[in-house]
């Protein structure tokens, strides 16, 4: 049955409608969970609030197990799921830039729009910086095209790399995630902050 677009059950245009609705739901939940507060977001780096870690990892493991069960029941063909191809160097550089921007600005791209939508000026400034970055990247593309495309690894999976089943890998990730949740909550007690 799934993926719906790849199997031509819905068109790409309909897909955009779904994406729009899911995006609104995503933003609503982000806002509701307090992700429009840059102090809360930055808390994960200082240990006083690890809700970002907990929310995103919970989402990841829920989606992961859900997909594996859908695949088990034959409701989705995982080989047709789009996986971002890995260009190792640009992935590392992008991660560093993104992480630095996250600490400095207090937002990640999605949450900055969340913050801007409730009128936070720092979030709006962040969006300006974000667009500036996109502009610089686009205009200067010839300069870093070689670096950008270097070390292409295809679409590697950790489970394939380690030679284990996807399901077993999922179990390991779930256990690691719960371990991190536990450490995160321990850190929250260790580095408490009264108000943020």
């Amino acid at each position: 049955m799934g993926p719906l677009v790849a199997n031509e059950i819905i068109t790409t245009d309909t897909n955009l409608v779904f994406a729009f609705l899911i995006g609104i739901g995503f933003g609503f939940v982000l806002e509701g969970a307090g992700f429009s507060s840059s102090r809360k977001l930055a808390g994960v780096f200082y240990g006083y609030d690890t809700v970002v870690l907990k929310v995103f990892f919970t989402a990841a493991i829920t989606a992961m197990i859900g997909l594996l069960f859908l695949s088990l029941f034959g409701w989705i063909d995982l080989s047709l799921i789009y996986i971002n191809p890995t260009f190792l160097y640009s992935a590392i550089a992008g991660g560093v830039i993104m992480g630095a921007g996250f600490i400095l600005g207090g937002f990640c791209p999605g949450t900055s729009f969340c913050g801007a939508s409730i009128g936070k000026i720092d979030a709006m400034v962040f969006i300006v910086g974000l667009i500036l970055g996109i502009f610089i990247f686009g205009e200067g593309y010839p300069l870093w095209e070689d670096f950008y495309k270097a070390k292409f690894l295809g679409i590697p999976k950790i489970s394939e790399f380690m030679g284990i089943k996807d399901g077993l890998m999922a179990l390991i990730i779930v256990l690691v995630a719960f371990g991190m949740f536990w450490i995160g909550e321990w850190a929250e007690k260790k580095f408490p902050r009264e108000e943020y």
């Binding site: 049955m1 829920t62 088990l72 034959g74 089943k165 179990l171 779930v174 949740f181």
Partner: peptide, 28 residues
Amino acid sequence: SRLLLAGFIIPMALIIAAVPSNTTKQYK
């Protein structure tokens, strides 16, 4: 709620780790 979450997700992960992965290809 934490125990509830762990009590749900970890058994699910155990199940998915134990069952053989579905190799039937929905052919197209």
